[in-house]
Design a binder for these strands. Structure first.
Lengths: 157, 157
DNA sequence: AACCGCTGCTTGATTGGTCAAGCAAATATG
DNA sequence: CATATTTGCTTGACCAATCAAGCAGCGGTT
């Protein structure tokens, strides 16, 4: 990368090529498709769903903005805005953090929990149909590891 | 999906779960990472790169907006805006379509072609390092087919 | 105990995309 | 052949994300 003058690198094989193209397509299409399924079905966009989901998996249904943002793969400001949206719907409430007065906790309300319960069948179905279904013959654990690597890879040069 | 009252569907296995989580991460992280690599190196965001790429693969380096949008997985208006950006950089020119006076062709200029030549090593390296590298043991053709399915799946219910 | 830099979060400006409405050319219809 | 409908693309309004700047509270230094 830092040596773009390396004139003509080895091009992709045709298999690599079609994999890359297919991935490009999936990255564009899948989130919108799942989103559409969910919005159509239960009025909960994927980002908001993910936030609620992560909150619900915590013992006391609350989390610092920081941590939640990381789990949702969102910038901190993006998270702030998502939580505001959820707050105005009454699905989440914000409470100052006890041990650090700068911090906030996003807290899942009962309404939020109920909403999540309502939504997750939709989400589950969408994920299965749009994604998992297509990987039936595969070693899922191996696949998951590969994806994790791709997601976390740091520049190696 | 259309029966959300189907109370408690079968939850995901833990393998499915981690695959889905990993995918979520990849979908967020990968495009930005590749984009960052390219912008850092050669100032060409991924969307614009993809447009130039598709134009270059055409015999006379031109294409209707319609078709180009589909290949770039972009809405028609999104495509219009991308082409405008490229046009102001002189990398693409627009010409009225001969056989249909409503239509436009996006035409890759020589500058555009040169720019693409400059950029593709970056792009190639980014794709390899961020993605392909992590799927070394896999049957790439099979994987590509699965992804294509996921990208094109229509609601089945 | 007064300061200084760091941290946690929000806010403002910008970006890159979407959908819906608009316009002009093409095509189908009475 | 006049008019209605459809098509191809652009434009306007909007939206959700980003980054950069701001602000308040924390903690270490002296």
């Amino acid at each position: 990368m830092s040596n773009p003058s390396a004139a003509t690198p080895q091009p992709l094989t045709s298999e690599e090529e079609s994999l890359v193209r297919a991935l490009g397509q999936v990255m564009h299409v899948l989130p919108r498709a799942i989103d559409a399924d969910m919005v159509g079905d239960r009025q909960l966009p994927l980002t908001e769903y993910t936030a609620l989901m992560n909150l619900s998996e915590t013992p006391d249904r609350r989390m610092r903005m920081n941590e939640l943002a990381a789990l949702c793969h969102l910038s901190l400001s993006g998270m702030t805005r998502t939580i505001i949206r959820l707050e105005t719907q009454g699905l989440v409430r914000r409470e100052r953090c006890e041990e650090d007065a700068r911090g906030w906790n996003a807290v899942l309300t009962d309404a939020g929990y109920a909403r999540l319960q309502e939504s997750w069948p939709s989400h589950l179905a969408a994920v299965r149909r749009r994604f998992l279904q297509h990987f039936e013959g595969f070693d899922l654990a191996q696949l998951a590891r590969a994806f994790q690597g791709a997601g976390t890879a740091e520049p190696t040069d």
